[in-house]
Design a protein around this nucleic acid. Sequence first.
DNA 1: ATAAACTAAATTGGATCCAATATTCAATAT
DNA 2: ATATTGAATATTGGATCCAATTTAGTTTAT
Lengths: 219, 219
Amino acid sequence: MKLKSMDISATASASSIVFDALRKAIIEGQLEEGEPLRQDEIARLFNTSRIPVREAISRLEEQGLVKTQRYKGAVVAGLSPRETEEIFDLRTLVEPEIIRNAVPLMSKDILVQAREKCAAFSASSDPMEWGDLNRDFHETLYSASNLKFFLEIAHNAIDRVERQIRAQLVMSNGMERAGREHFGILEACETGNAELAAKLTREHIQGAKKSLLAHLPLS
Amino acid sequence: MKLKSMDISATASASSIVFDALRKAIIEGQLEEGEPLRQDEIARLFNTSRIPVREAISRLEEQGLVKTQRYKGAVVAGLSPRETEEIFDLRTLVEPEIIRNAVPLMSKDILVQAREKCAAFSASSDPMEWGDLNRDFHETLYSASNLKFFLEIAHNAIDRVERQIRAQLVMSNGMERAGREHFGILEACETGNAELAAKLTREHIQGAKKSLLAHLPLS
DNA sequence: ATAAACTAAATTGGATCCAATATTCAATAT
DNA sequence: ATATTGAATATTGGATCCAATTTAGTTTAT
């Protein structure tokens, strides 16, 4: 008997591991905006050389998560209030389209998962979890969509404002409002009402934007 | 008297030079879809080592212009008809917003430039130029916008279908229709009619999409 | 003859080394 | 004291080398 190529979950390349770890640290806010990313230091942290680190950093720059200057290195990218607003406007344009496309494609299983995540979000009392649970809920609904490029853009846009989203959730009313709106979106999905789900998603994002900008300087 | 820092236009890094050259070669169709990108060969072409080449390729992958497999290398990315359609739908969503935003911000100078490029496009009889001239016209109008993230996305989306756009221009009616529609968009911009410019841009893109898909297999 | 198994060449991923530039900080001049 | 110059250090960009993996070609077994 012949063994077919097993495709053992090919251990990721060092550069991908570094990329994922840095991306996570940035969007979760563990690395502060403006903080320099020293190649040597990161390489030591991951027991690799600087080569994979440089590759990871250049990919992060392509995603807008870090900014680099020749011979000066990379720092965690930040957003001006103006730029934050634009990212939310971009999300307002793209994400309702994703939901509209996704609703007719949502399997029973996806909806069950979404309901669980929606409940977990509302039930959580640990602010450290809120960001992940919030994103988890939205990702679950979006995952039913087959618009891969729209999804790419939404993911990247969310990445860039994830730090602010997490701050917004801990603001007064942040969790309460988000939880309420999540249930509304979920219900629209469950009843197959794509237009309503899109509309509520749009309002959800615009609401977050307003709430965020109100608490930002010179907005 | 004191001399202020001159900021001599710092010669670009090798990886950026390679990145720009490969990107250009890909979107212009000089590198065929599926064609492997050998690090060693490219390094020799640019008189550098493979390190900057690898960085360039990883950035191109982040932009979706190449696809890489671990230990197998990178190939020029292609799009299925389905994916091509989605990219055009994305453009249909984003670019009208850019124009709507840009119209009130268009200086006299921008409009003069746009008119020149519009004329140059319609006047050109060299198919090798059509792609550049077409993109040049749109870029000029878009450049008045201050929506940097929207622009990022539009640029990337156009990059990914530039090859097909060029093919579409040489198709029957391609140039004729594009030229006509360009004049319409330009006129709307000149008269400050942002809504009309947005509507015509939408139709321009949707028209290109339909014309393209009609000539594609299993569309 | 065909297919599996093995070997050699090609190719990529990563480590180490060197060059180019920036940064720090002490020494000097005003 | 403050600003300027100049070495010493730190940091990045790139070249060269080695290891891991794939691919091509050859041999061998059935």
